[in-house]
Nucleic acid binder design. Sequence first.
DNA 1: ACGGTCTCTGCAACCGGTTGCAGAGACCGG
DNA 2: CCGGTCTCTGCAACCGGTTGCAGAGACCGT
Lengths: 325, 325
Amino acid sequence: MATLMDVAHAAGVSKATASRALHRPDMVAEGTRLRVREAADRLGFQLNAAARALTTGRTGLVGLIVPTLSNPFFAPLVIGAQQAAEDTESHLLIAVSEYDAEREAALADRLSEQADGLIMVTPVGTDAALRERFRRQPLVLVDRQVGRLPAVVADTAAGLAELLGRLLDLGHREIAYVSGPAGSWADAQRRAALTAQASEAGAHVHVLGPLPPTFDAGIEASRSLPAAATAVLAYNSYLALGLLHGLGTTGRRVPEDISLAAADDLSTLGATTPPVTALDVPLQQVGRLAVTRLHELLDGQRRTVTSRVPAAPVLRASTAPPRVS
Amino acid sequence: MATLMDVAHAAGVSKATASRALHRPDMVAEGTRLRVREAADRLGFQLNAAARALTTGRTGLVGLIVPTLSNPFFAPLVIGAQQAAEDTESHLLIAVSEYDAEREAALADRLSEQADGLIMVTPVGTDAALRERFRRQPLVLVDRQVGRLPAVVADTAAGLAELLGRLLDLGHREIAYVSGPAGSWADAQRRAALTAQASEAGAHVHVLGPLPPTFDAGIEASRSLPAAATAVLAYNSYLALGLLHGLGTTGRRVPEDISLAAADDLSTLGATTPPVTALDVPLQQVGRLAVTRLHELLDGQRRTVTSRVPAAPVLRASTAPPRVS
DNA sequence: ACGGTCTCTGCAACCGGTTGCAGAGACCGG
DNA sequence: CCGGTCTCTGCAACCGGTTGCAGAGACCGT
């Protein structure tokens, strides 16, 4: 593998000039630059990332820790992050925590050796640990707020509030909310937003759970819905799918007997019978923004604000006015 | 950030000894080792990955290129790869090609600057390009065979053959196969295996497609199934889900009127009505194996064989004997 | 013709580890 | 007591880039 030295030699200049010709074009005479460039790709020169990282102190790597990849919910996040990474000539170092705080910490430690900074999607785990980690290394949180740490959150609480508004408009007054995993930050946000808004409107939100955000848990939940509820909101698509299935087998029709909606939007929700009303969460943008924020942080721009991206309801056939009883 | 030099100083030894104390324990006296270790974690020493990579020529990074992450099919692959990476103290550098050969090539080029080797899941793209790339850098292919290049493949063709066997046993003789994307290596393998085996058994396989492996394409396909077909095999779960939906809306019952099965197994297939017979592809193992193979390659063990992991049918309610006509 | 400025290039130090080689003692057998 | 072996440690070179600093000309205005 050709080194910069080889290139410099071939072009008849010094290592320093070669280096500048390749990424400081304005510091070098036109002719020289051309000669070096030509020599470089004649020799198939590839810059040694490690050597560069050693001097510059930047690896160009962004660590990304997600709780899982089995949930396609996270795919757009990764895609968005990758797009932003490409734009900034960096790469994604990925790790999956499996919702395990200890494992997550270990991965973060190991990733941080190689990466310039970390992006963490960490619904579980303590605030204190995250604060501590932020003190040691550049860090951007996703879908979670801890004090004034930089974060990018999808504003599902607001979106869900809007969704609830629609249900209230339709006439629903007794609404069940099927919670997500215990200790989830996002879930707590949603629960709080919903109950507050409902009581304001003279309605009531029945909270079920916490539950694991799975299809099976959704089926379970469908059996314990309060009889009064005319609509049910689910923490995520899997729960919603389980609910749909469970309601179907117990003979309750959606939306005639009960309305159903989910607080995220997997593509399958549009393909069920009936299609399920959902919240479109622009995760790709979240991913992109997270990387951008991280780079701002690395460049020393102290914009440690929380970025919010709005989530909007997508109304489908699973929501309708309650049956007049 | 403390450097090795600082640690050495604190422990009253030289840089060299400090280095050895940390990862060549047997070369150093017990007492010294302890002193160095103690100093290291007192100072919160973190080894600089770039510096290490520069001298050793190993970054400890494995590049992984997948066509997409939106399909949860690939999640276990990533998980498996990550597990193997953890075991070998390395990390996953991930990139998504979006099924675009040009993009894939660019990503591979850029990843290879940083990674010790590449693992590529590349259903599209030419053999020649892969061969060429292999000449330049350690490379392991997944779900694709190109000459004698190292590869790990899930033996879906064999698994599908077994599945076809079951259908034949049930009495099916006219079977539709709904193909995957044009140019897909795996799809070609399956098609060939199926048609050969069917004609041997006096049955006939009707090939539809190629089609994009999506839910919608599955719906489309459900409208153009040959009337004679009593069973249909789909290239993947999404097509199968689409077929199930499409058949439902046109009034053909599964499995009474027609049997249905998929050549991979997303968890949702077990949750439909009826649950869909599928092929369990142990992708996690594939991912793990791919990383192992890559490391063998890096360590100079020239085991450039193709590893196969078996895929086994999971029989569910969507397959039954054909209706006697 | 001359001093000053500006543009371009090279020298050499530096980033933070790893490792071949050699030297210093300790230890051992004869 | 001596030479040989073995264990442990340090010196210094090296990996392959980047960058501050200074020097060499070119060019300019007076």
